[in-house]
Structure formats: C-alpha cells, structure tokens
Design a protein around this nucleic acid. Structure first.
Length: 345
DNA sequence: AAGTCGGGGTA
DNA sequence: TACCCAGACTT
C-alpha cells in the first residue's frame, strides 16, 4: 500500500491549509515578478507594505522602466539588499526594450533578466504562465532535505544538484503548477519550519525520513556558524544655515549601494580635516551622539554620530555625489535604515 | 566554493 | 542571542 503521490498530498493540503490571500497571488507577471524579488531572503510579513507602496507608484513595467533609479531605491528604502532594486529597474528596461514590453514566458528567458536566478524564474513562470518548472528556495530545500533524508550542506554544489533533481522529479502534470508551487512554500513557511516543525499537521509525514528517524533538527544539515567581525565608523551630520544636512550617494557596489548616506570618516579626531579634504566643507564639531550598533548578516557596525555645523564651503576638491537635503527630503529619499532611525529621533 | 549583500521575525 | 527568510551575483 503506497500513499498518494507527493504532489497530490501537497495539493490537497494546500487547498484547505495553504495561504490564499497574499496580495501577489495574481497571474500578472509584473506583480508576480515584483513579489518574488521582494521576497528574496525576506519574509512575507515584511514585504507586504513595501509591495503595496511600490505598486501604487509603479503600477506596471512601463512606469517602472521610465522612472529614475533613485525613485526605485527610495521605495526600497528599509527593505535591504538594494541590488535587488537596481536589478529590478534594469530588468524593467530590458523587458521594454528587448521584449517589447511583454514579460518573457520561458524560465530560460526569464532568468536572463538581472536579479532573476533559476528558482525565481521558475516561480514566475509557474505562477504567471502555468509553466511546469521546479523552484528551489529555502522552504523547498528544507522540506526535501527532511522528507528524503538528504544529509550535507545545502550550499554544497553536489547537494544542491541532488535537490534540484528531486524537485524536478516530484513535479505534477496538469494545470496545478501555481497551486503546487505555492503549496511547497506554504508548507515550509507554516508546517515544516526550521525549528519545531508541526509534523503531525504535515501531509508528508507518513514517508518523511526526518520524521521517521527523529532527525528534524539535524536536517537540513545546519550551516557551520562563523564569528562575524566588528567595524566602526563615524557618520558626520553636518547642518548648513538652512538646517539642511549633507548626504553622499554611495557607489553602486558595496554596502547600501546607490543609497544616500551621511558622509563617513574613520574617527572624530581628524573629522574637521577630513571634511575639508573630502567634502569641501569647513566645519566645526558640535556634540558627539551616542554610539549605536547596526548588525548586518556578515559584520557588526558601530556607528558614532558626530554633529557639526557648516562654516563655509570650498567647492574645489569635493568628492562626487554630495548634496544638501532638507530633513523631509532626506526621509523621502533612498536612505538606509540606521540613517532613517537617526533622522527620526 | 566562498564571500557579499539588509533588515527583521521568531524562538 | 542565534537562526533564517519565495537568492543572486561576484570573486
């Protein structure tokens, strides 16, 4: 006696226990695409307000393609992984220019757009065009590693290849690709969770290797933990006579790429000289703000806010990307989260 | 293969 | 705290 197929059990479970009211559960490829990009490494509850605001400003791919990238980054401000926003903008322009405004249909063509890898391309194709294509996101990796009892780091190439092959072998035939794709994500997000999975509610429990062997906590194989380094920086909050502050747009690569940020110096000691040389600003230092810590995934940044007053500007020998902002304009621009916190207090 | 890239939810 | 999230891209 064998259980119903994997996909059938997943689909039946999804019909009654899946998530059916997410705002991007539509067939419009633009909306599906936008949601998939925002959802990369970002949880549903975090994405929803950003998604709504973004769609109000950019209701279709043409409006997105025509916008300045600064406007796109402003709407992404606070969501993180800002390369996603710049790639989204580039991809919108590619859809207009190379595809005549119609979103490409095949996973291969979709994945050629910047910011879209194999899994995201498959999800877009499945949701928008009912294409039979396997996804392999964090949820699916966890579900499959447990269900099939696959040991080894999922980041390892051989393991990932194995998971892709398994995911493709389990695909259903017929018209159920949107539901099946959603079902995998929903099972991983609500039942087969990283910690304390709800195995008794799982449609795959009867033949799940991890459950059979009590290895739910060991699969997928936990990543080795590494110690993240600490860095420090001083952010200069320079005010001019009109109460504006000086911001500097960061280069496209690196942390907070393309965002507007406070000018940084290594320490408060040489801040006056550094401001003269790099910012073309003669300043006097005011109070030093209280340190605060901002934690990234790969390092911990201690930020010292240094308040200062502009005495006069020296236009020559200024670095690029410097601009004075009134506070409300700064808050409406593409700025990173710690700067928003600093300006709002 | 390993590192880079944010910010937040959750236990 | 520590882990992980509808990953992609660079080195």
């Amino acid at each position: 006696m064998s259980a119903a197929p994997f996909s059938r059990r997943l689909l039946d479970w999804h019909a009654t226990h899946g998530r059916h009211d997410l705002p991007w559960q539509v067939s419009d490829p633009y909306r599906v695409w936008l949601s998939e990009i925002m959802l990369q490494q970002t949880q549903v509850i975090t994405v929803i307000p950003y998604y709504q605001r973004f769609l109000e400003r950019f209701p279709d791919v043409a409006s997105l393609a025509a916008a300045p990238v600064d406007d796109v980054l402003a709407l992404w401000s606070g969501l993180g992984y800002y390369t996603r926003a710049r790639n989204l903008h580039k991809a919108a322009q590619a859809v207009i220019e190379r595809h005549g405004g119609a979103f490409p249909r095949s996973p291969a063509a979709i994945s050629e757009l910047p910011g879209i890898g194999a899994s995201t391309a498959a999800a877009i194709a499945a949701f928008s065009f009912n294409t039979r294509a396997a996804i392999l996101d964090g949820n699916v990796k966890r579900v499959l590693a447990r269900w099939a009892g696959i040991d080894g780091l999922v980041a390892q190439k051989a393991i990932e290849k194995q998971l892709w092959a398994l995911a493709e072998s389990l695909l259903p035939d017929g018209p159920d690709m949107p539901a099946y794709t959603q079902a995998q994500m929903d099972l991983g997000a609500t039942v087969c969770t990283p910690k304390k999975p709800a195995c008794l509610a799982c449609p795959l429990q009867d033949d799940c290797v991890a459950k059979r062997d009590g290895r739910q906590a060991e699969l997928p194989t936990p990543k080795p933990k590494k110690i993240i380094p600490s860095k420090t920086t001083v952010m200069l909050l320079i005010r001019d006579g009109a109460g504006r502050i000086l911001l500097q747009q960061r280069p496209p690569n690196g942390i907070w790429g393309g965002l507007w940020c406070l000018p940084e110096v290594p320490s408060t000691l040489a801040a006056v000289a550094d401001a003269r040389a790099q910012l073309g600003c003669e300043i006097e230092l005011d109070e030093t703000g209280e340190d605060f810590v901002h934690v990234f995934s790969h390092y911990r940044l201690t930020i010292t806010p240094q308040y200062a007053t502009l005495l006069r500007e020296i236009p020559q020998a200024r670095e690029a990307g410097l601009q004075w902002f009134a506070i409300p304009d700064a808050l409406a621009a593409g700025i990173p989260k710690p700067l928003r916190s600093l300006l709002e207090r």
